[in-house]
């Protein structure tokens, strides 16, 4: 960013002038008094005009960058983003709904259309794009492109209540072929566990302990009403992080702590403590991990 270079130069000049003046013009204890200079119109005009010109120099590229970054090309992949206290939901035109991990094709422009279910959030992937607020009752859009496949860190940047700090997410940019495969896999219903297995036990607990009041698992439970207030778990295990990307699916401890008492791990969480026994939790973890 040229503005930083310009700022750095001005910074050095000004600070150097202050330090130079401090040494050069310090009181040396002699009798001579300084000349009483009241100003200098030429100099003052100069240090009004030069900064103004520098600013014009900064303004021109700023304006053109704003215009460039505002509109996505027509062939962009469109994905909807919904902000919840305190996790992001993503839904694709193919009918896929996921959370916390935004999967995109690398090297393709992405056009996000974003809104919020509750308060104002702000969607930020530092290495890929600037912030854009996610506002209830409005649709804002953000356009970006991940040149390289890989995983990028993202975070809600607008203070949104108790667990704002734990409202992060990941962007996983896949090579186009893998992305197509991912799309296909995500459209499948959830994996059916083998009868009598620990996973099947877990599924029964899921059905019996009220989880289905909030969570969708395609082929297992559908929440009544349009948009459930909880992450879709159909392909939970295809992701690597959960609960606002503040916890890791690979970690037994994280999953255990979460299922034992969510608000203790993430203040204010809208998933209640359901009083699950350690055995219930073991079975649920097995089931959740099977949801590839």
């Amino acid at each position: 960013m040229p503005v930083f270079a310009i700022a750095a130069v001005i910074f050095i000049l000004v600070e150097a002038a202050v330090v130079y003046a401090a040494f050069k013009f310090r009181d040396r204890g002699d009798e001579t008094e300084p000349k009483q200079i009241h100003g200098n119109n030429k100099l003052e005009a100069l240090w009004t005009i030069i900064p103004a010109l520098i600013l014009v120099g900064i303004a021109v590229p700023t304006v053109s960058a704003i215009v460039d970054l505002t509109s996505a090309p027509d062939d962009a992949v469109e994905i909807d983003v919904i902000g919840h206290q305190w996790w992001f939901e993503f839904s694709y035109p193919e009918g896929i709904t996921t959370a916390n991990v935004l999967v995109v094709p690398a090297g393709t422009p992405i056009d996000l259309s974003m809104t919020s279910k509750d308060v104002v959030h702000s969607f930020w992937i530092p290495r890929l794009a600037g912030k854009r607020d996610v506002i209830p009752g409005q649709y804002t859009s953000l356009y970006f492109e991940a040149d390289e496949p890989g995983e990028y860190w993202g975070q809600c940047a607008e203070f949104c209540g108790l667990s704002h700090a734990k409202m992060s997410f990941r962007v996983r940019a896949l090579p186009p072929a893998e992305y197509t495969a991912w799309l296909q896999a995500q459209q499948q219903p959830a994996v059916e566990p083998a009868a009598g297995s620990l996973e099947a036990q877990g599924r029964d607990i899921f059905l019996g302990r009220g989880c289905i009041a909030c969570h969708n698992i395609k082929g297992v439970s559908e929440v009544a009403g349009e948009v459930p207030g909880a992450p879709d778990l159909t392909h939970f295990a295809s992701r690597n992080v959960f609960a606002g990307a503040s916890l890791s699916i690979d970690s037994d401890d994280d999953l255990r702590d979460w299922l034992a008492n969510p608000p203790a791990v993430k203040s204010g969480s809208f998933m209640p403590n359901l009083g699950l026994s350690p055995d219930d939790i073991t079975a649920l973890i097995a089931y959740l991990r099977s949801l590839e």
């Binding site: 000004v14 202050v18 009181d27 600013l55």
Partner: peptide, 21 residues
């Protein structure tokens, strides 16, 4: 611009003065 004017004028005030720290 006006902010810069102020900073430069403050430095101008110190310039060729007899600074007492």
């Amino acid at each position: 611009v006006p902010t810069g004017i102020k900073v430069f004028n403050w430095i101008g005030t110190m310039w060729e003065g007899k600074l007492k720290f």
